[in-house]
């Protein structure tokens, strides 16, 4: 047998996907990292509804006291949770959030420029004719 690297075993704060078909709903849970996604957690810290409601809001509920406690106990966060907590203000904004926003801005600018160019060409064509 080849020597295997030691498997990490620690507490995770991560999403557990509930809800049903075409209706995702997440619980924010503290759980051992090797457990299944929807296994029984140590504690549920809150919920996250990724579907925007009628007011275009994605609702999040977090028990910050317990979250602080578990973080102090050495629980690690998954990337989506880190992003969410960055937006919530407990953590600094996640770098990937910055990058995504940058990309979105860039895409929007490109689209705008394209539209502008198209409009200009249309205008010049119409004037030439």
């Amino acid at each position: 047998m080849p020597r295997m690297p030691p498997k990490p075993n620690h507490l995770m704060i991560r999403f557990a996907l509930y809800g049903c078909t075409n209706r995702p709903f997440n619980h924010i849970v503290v759980i051992q990292n090797r457990k299944n996604r929807n296994a029984k957690p140590l504690e549920q810290l809150g919920t996250y509804d990724p579907m925007p409601n009628a007011n275009q809001e994605k609702l999040v509920a977090i028990n910050f006291e317990r979250l602080r406690h578990w973080l102090a106990c050495g629980a690690l966060c998954s990337k989506p949770v880190e992003k969410l907590l960055g937006l919530a203000g407990l953590f600094p904004i996640h770098p990937m959030s910055y990058i995504t926003a940058q990309r979105n801005r860039k895409k929007a600018a490109e689209k705008e420029a394209e539209e502008k160019a198209a409009a200009e060409t249309e205008k010049s064509e119409s004037t030439a004719s």
């Binding site: 406690h69 102090a72 953590f91 600094p92 770098p95």
Partner: peptide, 21 residues
């Protein structure tokens, strides 16, 4: 950015740990 992020996160964790202690 990741380097900075991780440093800050470590600091926050340490702070929370001291608070907890």
């Amino acid at each position: 950015m990741y380097f900075h992020y991780r440093t800050k996160l470590r600091a926050i964790r340490g702070f929370l740990r001291t608070q907890y202690d």
